[in-house]
Simulated scan of single mutants.
Amino acid sequence: MQRRHFLQLSSIAASAGSFGSVFVAIPAAAANWRQFEVTTFVDLSEKTAQSKVWIPVPAAELPGYQRTVDVSFSAPGATKAELFAVPGTDVRMIAVQWADAASAHTVEVKSRIAVLDRATDLGAAGTARKLPAAQLRPYLQPTSLAPLDGIVKETADKIQAEAGKPQDAIGKARAIYDWMVANCTRDGSVAGCGTGDVRYTLTSGNLSGKCADLNGLFTALSRASGVPARDVYGVRVDDSVHGFKSLGKSGDISKAQHCRAEFYADGYGWIPVDPADVAKVALEEQPGGLPKDAPKVRAARAMLFGGWEGNWMAYNTAADVRLPGAGKAVGFFMYPQGETAQGRLDSLDPAHFTYRITSTKLG
């Protein structure tokens, strides 16, 4: 058996050696922090001598709202198992491979985190330190799923023109958010969190999808408007304490992955938004759905421009992620990924992959 423990993800371990695992307590004064243990268990029933699995783990730290306290894992029978960080990104994963088809093909990963609600006071003067242009430049670039030319740029320009061409980042982002809330809907039939293919969403004639589609659209339209923005990929870990039945999940969270978004404004830093969850409340908060002017939808709309509830764990903010030892990049890394000698496994089908993710509240 191989077992590794990492203290606040402070080091990258090779496949030999071990480290003690210590749960670092959150200070008592930080009473609003919620603490969780998230366990991902993978059991490959299709055992081959070329099997590989890549499991996302939470970002080391997202200042002000998420702390990774500890990550540990066990991979009995594996030839190699390590915590791997993708250079130049905030992506971290447990990468496992097997060479013996007769060995156990299981992996268990435990992540302990603390999370906090976010709320940005956009009515107050911003005092956050300004980030250098070089640090923000990647968040103004196109990706494989989100080009910034053609229909994306045309749509962004139309939105800004209809809003009176606001000059500041918050005004531009607000125009995009309001346009999306008015025009986009959630499609419950879409597999997983959607593909995140922005050009397809805009050319399909049907502005709908799930979180990777809709929040991905927000990010692309923001970038095309000159506003640094990024998707943040993660998973819901608890029920909502703010009265939204549709915006939480506890216990078995194998299908609770959720992509959020952020945009950057001088003086405020990264500002959280989630137009996809406004659409989710409209569709799922009660049987038959709710109109967009319903009190609960309006409450979600107000909360989710500048705020997120801390019942969610972030993995990373990266696009076009290259998995070590894999043939091609994935557009985003939010699900366990795997492949055998027969090819890539379906990450959106945990029942047949097979994997299970659970969340336990610690305090």
Rank of each mutant, 00 (worst) to 15 (best):
D43G: 02
T40K: 00
A59L: 05
I113T: 12
T39W: 07
D157Q: 10
V91W: 10
W54H: 08
A30I: 13
R223A: 14
R260G: 09
D157F: 00
G327I: 01
D277L: 01
L221K: 04
V57K: 11
L145D: 11
I151A: 10
Y139M: 12
R230D: 04
K110H: 15
R223H: 08
V321R: 09
G164N: 11
A265G: 01
A95Y: 09
L62K: 10
G20H: 14
L290S: 11
T195R: 14
Q342A: 10
D293M: 10
Q286D: 00
G164P: 04
V297E: 05
R260I: 02
I113V: 15
A95N: 08
D178G: 06
G251I: 06
F73V: 11
T120G: 00
V57H: 06
K52R: 15
N215R: 03
L116S: 05
R4V: 10
A326N: 04
G306C: 03
A329E: 07
Q337A: 10
S347Y: 13
R230H: 02
L145H: 03
W308Y: 07
S15G: 11
A173E: 09
V152A: 06
G306H: 04
A14P: 00
Q2M: 13
S225Q: 01
F263M: 01
S144C: 07
L122H: 11
A31M: 01
C184T: 14
D346V: 07
S72K: 08
A229E: 07
V198G: 07
R174N: 02
P27I: 06
G88H: 04
F84A: 03
A256D: 14
T358W: 02
V227S: 02
A78L: 13
H242K: 15
D100R: 00
S21T: 11
D43K: 04
C193K: 00
L145V: 06
K292T: 06
A294M: 05
N183Y: 02
P132N: 05
F36N: 06
T317M: 06
A261K: 04
R186K: 14
L9P: 04
K255C: 10
Y355W: 09
